[in-house]
Each structure stands twice: as C-alpha cells, then as structure tokens.
C-alpha cells in the first residue's frame, strides 16, 4: 500500500515549547485517520507538520515522497489543510470562490462544475454569496475548493465544528466520497464518537507523542 505520510521521531517546536516530542506516524493512501486527544496534545501540530507549515527540528518526515526537513514548502501544493476558518471570500459567490481557487492552479471550468456538484453546492446555491451561506454550506464550499486544487491529502482540523447533525452527516459522506476517489484524510476532532465511525484508524495523541492506535 502506498505510504502518504511517514513521520519518524518528529520533534517540532512552537514558541520554544515542544509541540511534538518524537511522533511516529505512518498513513497509507485511502485511509481516514482520526487524531484524538486532549487540548494541547499536539493534534493540530501534526496536521501543520504534514502541511509543511511547521518545521521539523529533529527526526525525519515525508509527505507524498517530499522530504519535510528539506522541502517542506513544496508539499503544500499537494495537501489541503482546512482549519477553523474556511478561507473563503465572503463577498464572492460560491462559484466565484471555487473558480478563484481553480484558477490559481489552472483547473478547468469543468473541474469546478464537478467539484461543486460533488459538494452539492451547484444549482441555486452556486450564485449565493459566501456571506449568506450557513456554516455547513461554507464548509462544503471550502471542501469544493480543496477538490479543485487537486489536493491528494486532506488535513482537517475539527471539521465537524459548527455543523448541525445534518451538516455533519453530509461532511462524513463527502470525506468517504473523497477517499473513494483516491484522496487520503487525516482529521483532528473532538467529536470522537462520530469520527470513530468514519475513521479507518484512530490514533491517540497525548503530550506531543502517539500514545496508542486502533483500527
């Protein structure tokens, strides 16, 4: 099975504080890996290391074959990190937002239409401004932007936050659909009951270390 993420003894420092104290993690293509643990455990830091945003101080790491110690900036084009905000332009419509992200990578109008269709934001919603969308609809718009950017590794930080039950169900379906299309998902979530049902593997993070893993 193709390895997408490989972290070995990774130490990462945030403001002189060791956010990760020697993490070992391997993620294969097509997996949905749930990172769970208490606040400050290092879940977000793992996502940020994988996205090439947080430098590795010690240990070795690679994502999609890119060495994170030497070329962490180059991995960003292949991963999509969705944090607490959605990265949308609130005064643009759904179509304009997704088209903007598509145009930054040279994706076609057809890819935009397909992504919007997959996220169920085509039709009536397509011409609604992002500022007028519900939290769930904004999340779907942000995910459509990840799709048109052709991200193969989705890194999601608390993706269920702010969504109602129907929105959470939709998000789960979207993630499963993304994985079946060849993407890999690593998510950090407090909604462990819901996320456990979705995940193919659960990894417990505590004190900047992996303290357990279950399939």
């Amino acid at each position: 099975m193709e390895t997408v993420v490989e972290l070995s003894g990774v130490v990462a420092v945030l403001s002189n504080f060791p956010a990760l104290a020697g993490i070992d993690l391997v993620v294969h293509r097509g997996e949905i890996v749930l990172l769970h643990g208490p606040n400050g455990a290092g879940k977000t830091s793992v996502l940020r290391v994988c996205a090439g945003l947080l430098p590795i101080e010690r240990g070795e790491g690679s994502v999609m074959g890119v060495n994170l110690r030497t070329h962490r900036e180059s991995v960003r084009e292949q991963v999509g990190l969705l944090g607490h905000s959605n990265g949308l332009y609130l005064e643009l419509t759904v179509t304009q937002n997704v088209s903007f992200w598509a145009s930054t990578v040279g994706a076609t109008a057809q890819e935009v239409a397909l992504a919007m269709q997959r996220m169920k934001i085509d039709g009536r919603l397509a011409h609604v401004k992002a500022s007028q969308l519900s939290a769930g609809q904004r999340r779907r718009c942000a995910l459509a932007s990840l799709i048109v950017r052709r991200a193969s590794l989705w890194l999601l930080d608390e993706p269920h936050a702010g969504l109602d039950t129907a929105g959470q169900d939709e998000l789960d379906a979207i993630l499963q659909s993304a994985v079946s299309s060849g993407a890999t998902v690593v998510l950090a979530s407090h909604e462990t009951q819901r996320s456990r049902l979705l995940a193919t593997r659960v990894v417990k993070v505590d004190g900047g270390l992996i303290s357990g893993s279950e399939s």
């Binding site: 180059s74 960003r76 084009e77 990190l81 944090g83 905000s85 990265g87 930054t104």
Partner: peptide, 21 residues
C-alpha cells in the same frame, strides 16, 4: 480585510500559492 475575514490569506499561504503572484 477581505483576505483576513475568513482566513483566505492564510489559506493562500497554506496552499503554497506563489507569493510573487
């Protein structure tokens, strides 16, 4: 302000979008 209202500038940076562009 339009770049920071919903974290779009961060998203551009995170996506590795060419800063010179």
């Amino acid at each position: 302000a339009v770049e920071t209202a919903d974290g779009a500038l961060d998203a551009l940076r995170v996506a590795g979008t060419e800063p010179l562009g």
